[in-house]
């Protein structure tokens, strides 16, 4: 899939409760190994969803397939974003149209300045939204203001993208990117992993500030501690490439106390879907 030009995507106003992301019976594989085996999930504007599950259950794969990682092949099912076929878009067009993936392991890119990277990204998104691009000076003011959300030192702007950043700094940089890109659907893949208590609070506060009635957030996490700070409307539990059970915030607390074996022992088929 290639993209040569930016095309505005669904710039109609969003109302709280509008379906932003609809995943239907999604099957996806990597190198002939089927990882996703029929995922269905619907996310509406104003909602925060949490996705939990054992290692290898397919959580990160789902996030990468939504973002358009080329290593994964969708073999069946669909993903609709604001009513349009998301799978038909290149990764960059998905991002420009408002889908954001916060990486579990943000990539280090030596030699590429973080400031330049952020400016080019931000302008690509702004162009898609019909906004004027920001010049270097205006953007620098904008990014410095935005950095306050994650209490990030402006010195990180001068460094190469994620190079030499600690785990916590990388995650803050991800949330900074999220703040600059103003996504409609933000998927945060284990953003809480590797964070100390203070960093977790800062990142969680940042995510909460950015969650609006017209946007949606999907948190992929292993731990209740993130969900203590960001209370989800729905909690989903994945196993073997499918969502086995869906519930409210209490489901996460039950998982924390009883572990995933408890899910295996119960029948999740009667779980109400959001």
């Amino acid at each position: 899939m290639t993209s040569t030009e930016i095309t505005p995507f669904c710039e109609t106003p969003i109302q709280p409760g509008d379906v932003l992301l609809a995943v239907e019976n999604l099957h996806a594989c990597v190198e002939e190994n089927e990882i996703l085996q029929g995922v269905s999930l619907q996310i509406r504007a104003g909602e925060i969803h949490a996705l939990m599950g054992r290692n290898g259950s397919g959580k990160s794969t789902l996030s990468k397939v939504i973002a358009g990682h080329p290593a994964y092949t969708v073999t069946a099912g669909s993903i609709h974003y604001r009513g349009q076929d998301l799978l038909a878009l290149s990764p960059e067009d998905r991002a420009r149209s408002g889908v954001f993936l916060g990486f579990q392991y943000p990539v280090e890119i030596p030699g590429v300045s973080n400031l330049e990277f952020l400016r080019v990204s931000c302008n690509a998104r702004r162009q898609n939204r019909g906004q004027e691009e920001l010049d270097t000076f205006t953007f620098e003011d904008h990014v410095r203001e935005t950095m306050a959300i994650v209490q990030m030192d402006p010195a990180f702007l001068e460094r190469s993208v994620n190079e030499g950043f600690s785990g916590g700094e990388k995650k803050r940089n991800e949330i900074l990117q999220m703040a600059l890109l103003e996504p409609l659907v933000a998927i945060l893949d284990e953003t809480d992993s590797g964070l100390d208590i203070d960093a977790l609070r800062i990142v969680a506060n940042g995510v909460k500030k950015l969650a609006l009635p017209t946007t949606a957030t999907l948190l992929i996490t292993h731990y209740q501690r993130l969900l203590d700070a960001i209370i989800p409307d729905f909690v989903h539990v994945m196993a073997e490439g499918r969502i086995l059970r869906t519930g409210g915030k209490d489901l996460a607390m039950a998982l924390e106390q009883r572990g995933y074996d408890w899910i295996d022992e119960t029948d999740g088929s009667d779980t109400p879907q959001p």
Partner: peptide, 20 residues
Amino acid sequence: FYLQSRGIGRDQASRLLQRG
């Protein structure tokens, strides 16, 4: 992919990486 996932087209991402 990391750059593309931030809205940067593949060609421009390639140029950024080369410059880096």
